[in-house]
Design a protein around this nucleic acid. Structure first.
Length: 351
DNA sequence: AAACCGTGGCA
DNA sequence: TTGCCAAGGTT
């Protein structure tokens, strides 16, 4: 193969390009394994530009693993508010607690041990090991699969889980043992800036090693089959105020969608029940004079909510299910909420 | 293996 | 507007 015959030259081209062109990112100013770990978790399925402000705030608030280990759940979720995939931060805290308690606050420096930590999968393990410790381990993400699939003209379906091993093996074959950090980050940087879904091959530092470019097939790779259709779920959300001006809210279940985040009473709309009837049916709450607020769609990765929202009232003396509590506007502001709830809150916070 | 788990940017 | 997708992991 073209590439495998020229490994040394390929590494040199990639590394010199990376050292010259790499973006100046906050987590590239440190080799603290904990900071690298935080950045890698935030970057899972999330764009660099989105992550930067969250990363800065998070490290500022939790500068050490001990501070994160002791953080309270609502405060922690609030730091993650708007980032999505909220189980990431819960798992990160559990993983950090394990490191503090079982490994003397030293992030493990081998794949076997670090992979036992909550939320640390094959990619994150390899990323922390190579970037923080300089250990030659593969860190195969979507970027790397796109880049390598083009360079070696690999036409396996990358949506199939077992395909990833092909790329991990290739990376272990190619990786620069003198600078695994720059090599892995270089592959990702290339995927993020040049070897994008619509590639800019004329700017590519390694196009002379690229079989797909040679064949003119770069736009057809990587092969990716899966696309599931989103299920549509109509829901109604009731922002309910008592006579003291407090808001009725509940915490979502600790597992599943938007786990542990706070929301106004929300019901799924099925059949031909009205929103109010659905609310009474599910929670036995009967608010006074509901006024319709905004309606909108919120798209998750696998489902779509069609949200109708209402503003309504109770005296505050009525019986409500245990999981509900009244909060002042200031307290509501401090609770971690998902984006659809934030949207409703923005509409009513000043009434 | 396949489904679940968020969000915002962009063509 | 709709669909795709971006430094994945868990169950």
């Amino acid at each position: 193969m073209q590439l495998l015959d020229n490994k040394v030259e390929f590494r040199k081209s990639l590394l010199s390009w990376y050292k010259e062109e790499k973006r100046d990112l906050p987590w590239r100013h440190t080799s603290n394994p904990y900071y690298i770990w935080v950045s890698e978790v935030m970057l899972q399925q999330t764009r660099v530009d989105t992550v930067i402000p969250y990363y800065e705030r998070f490290i500022d608030k939790y500068p050490t693993m001990e501070t994160l280990a002791l953080a309270e759940e609502n405060e922690l979720l609030k730091m993650w508010e708007g980032l999505g995939y909220y189980s990431r931060v819960r798992n990160l805290q559990i993983g950090v607690q394990e490191v503090v308690e079982s490994y003397g606050s030293e992030v493990p420096n081998n794949r076997k041990t670090i992979s036992t930590l909550k939320g640390v999968g094959p990619y994150t393990a390899g990323a922390v090991l190579s970037i923080a410790y300089g250990i030659p381990e593969h860190a195969v993400d979507g970027n790397v699969m796109r880049v390598i699939s083009r360079i070696l003209l690999i036409e396996e379906d990358i949506s199939v889980p077992k395909t990833k091993k092909i790329f991990e093996d290739v990376v272990m074959e190619l990786i620069d043992k003198n600078d695994p950090s720059s090599f892995n980050q270089g592959l990702m940087e290339l995927g993020a800036t040049i070897c994008t879904p619509k590639p800019k091959c004329l700017l590519c530092p390694v196009r002379e090693y690229c079989s797909a470019f040679f064949e003119g097939k770069q736009e057809e790779l990587p092969v990716k089959s899966k696309k599931l259709k989103k299920k549509i779920i109509p829901v109604a959300s009731f922002a309910i105020r008592n006579e003291q001006g407090q808001w009725l809210m509940k915490q979502r279940p600790s597992k599943g969608l938007l786990a542990n985040l706070w929301e106004f009473p929300m019901v799924e709309l099925k059949g031909d029940a009205t929103p109010l009837e659905a609310l009474i049916e599910q929670y036995n709450i009967t608010p006074i004079e509901p006024d319709e607020l905004i309606s909108f769609k919120h798209l998750f990765s696998h489902i779509t909510w069609e949200v109708k929202s209402f503003l309504a009232h109770l005296t505050g003396m009525e019986k409500v299910p245990e999981e509900f509590q009244y909060f002042t506007s200031e307290e509501v502001e401090a609770l971690p909420k998902a984006v659809p709830v934030l949207k409703i809150w923005e509409e009513i916070k000043n009434v």
